[in-house]
Design a protein around this nucleic acid. Sequence first.
DNA 1: TAGGCGGATGACACCGGTGAAACTACCCCG
DNA 2: CGGGGTAGTTTCACCGGTGTCATCCGCCTA
Lengths: 176, 176
Amino acid sequence: MSSAYRPQDLETIVETYEDGFSGRKTAEIVGISYRQLDYWARTDLVRPSLADAKGSGSRRRYSYRDLLELKVIKQLLDAGLKLESVRDVFAYLRESLGEDIATANLVINGKNSVVVASGDELIDVLNAGQGVFNVLALGGVKDDLDAAIVELRPTPAASPAAEPDLDAEAPPASAV
Amino acid sequence: MSSAYRPQDLETIVETYEDGFSGRKTAEIVGISYRQLDYWARTDLVRPSLADAKGSGSRRRYSYRDLLELKVIKQLLDAGLKLESVRDVFAYLRESLGEDIATANLVINGKNSVVVASGDELIDVLNAGQGVFNVLALGGVKDDLDAAIVELRPTPAASPAAEPDLDAEAPPASAV
DNA sequence: TAGGCGGATGACACCGGTGAAACTACCCCG
DNA sequence: CGGGGTAGTTTCACCGGTGTCATCCGCCTA
């Protein structure tokens, strides 16, 4: 899928982030503005789990999992969801996210209902229910995130290997 | 499904609306505020197709199809979509809406892509694509709308047959 | 210990969406 | 033909989310 990099690269790169990701870097990787990241932290949507801000001069530190959540949020926003409903989603979602990310689908129905199904279950859910469903394949989110981490890896002056440009943006619309 | 009324009732009732639905009535039936209806008309989201407003004191007249569109919009908003993306959707959707409403599904992907698939096609699309999909079964929308029209039919004083009270609010969430 | 720099914070503005209330025009009935 | 009620229009205001800029603070390095 996403650009050509040896999977091992990701591990290596992530190791260099053992203290977590800074606010600005996080925003850059996830593809959101620093203002958004800041606002979301203040309003308890996603707080940096490694180190929270405590007064001016302190530093937020985001974990890889934080980035994952942030990326999911960005996807939902890009899909046209209101930030408000994203909040509702994460109120429920947080615990169930994390294990089988590669295959799981996030299904949002109405304002409260949130489900993580996998594969065929999804179809049953869609057939059964009413109203609007928002479906997000989590595997793609992780892929995007990993690709972005690789693209935006540190030491920008010491890696002339591959051009770190392009395809860091939107996953092609494909089908549809 | 929704309360007990003979299907013929709907036709009869709709006939009494041959001049179309007034703004207030439309808002009531669709389940939105008059303010929203007004704002949407001003900002070209849904204009009353039978008679538009021209100066204070004039009257807007909405067609049944207008109500259908409005109901779809309401569903999307209830699902947590931003009004902005609803606008994008309707820029494309308008022509394809109308024929096979009962079975069609509205699929929204990203900001631009809009598709109306039916039945199994839907599943293919979901498997193929990336990102977030918003799926809306249009049949349910029509059912809800029809039920609301029956509930809120005119001549509230002249129809002692069935008590036209209660459950005039939200069409039961059922399923889900 | 003194700078300097990265980054959190605060203040301000702006825009979209909506509620509330005042204003106004049309229609119908007497 | 005039009054009243109904309904559309207009204005004011608020809130959430975000951009921008200025400020302030703490850590790190020299």
